[in-house]
Amino acid sequence: MSVITIGISDQNVAKGEDVLVTYALGSCVGICLYDPIVKVAGLSHIMLPTNTGVTDPKGQMRFADTAIPMLIRRMESLGASKPRLKAKIAGGAQMFPAVTNASIANIGQRNVAAVKAVLAQLRIPILAEDTGKDYGRTQHFYAKDGVMRITSAKKGEWIW
């Protein structure tokens, strides 16, 4: 079993006993995708809703609308099939209560909305979500069974 760490604006795929983890999601959103038949898992950590013209692969991982299709392609190359994919999502918190700066006001909420819109368009159902509120979350995603585990330093632990 190996633990694969996904940084901010990053993504990866796993199978078998491997675990994907992304630490301390704040206003970013972590999107877990899973094909339960071939047991292929993917996790993408996005920062912003919409790509405004970034074309390099590293940059595309930053945005919900380009990162998710990219993750699906990577999972397909491991044998996953798009019609079988299910999603679990977490993050999108508002870390600072009274931020007045337009670029980051409600960014968590806007990220979650964008992720849902992209998944809906791709017809990928969302089985679980732990989003919004005002605290950071660490997200583990297990390739063997598609379980998402969320831990928060302030609020405890949940299994989804």
């Binding site: 630490y23 700066n101 950071g136 330093a153 302030k154």
Partner: peptide, 15 residues
């Protein structure tokens, strides 16, 4: 905000 460093830093990172 009192929280995990990574989560707090996501704010300037996103900006």
């Amino acid at each position: 905000c009192i929280d995990m460093a990574g989560a707090i830093l996501s704010v300037p990172a996103i900006h």
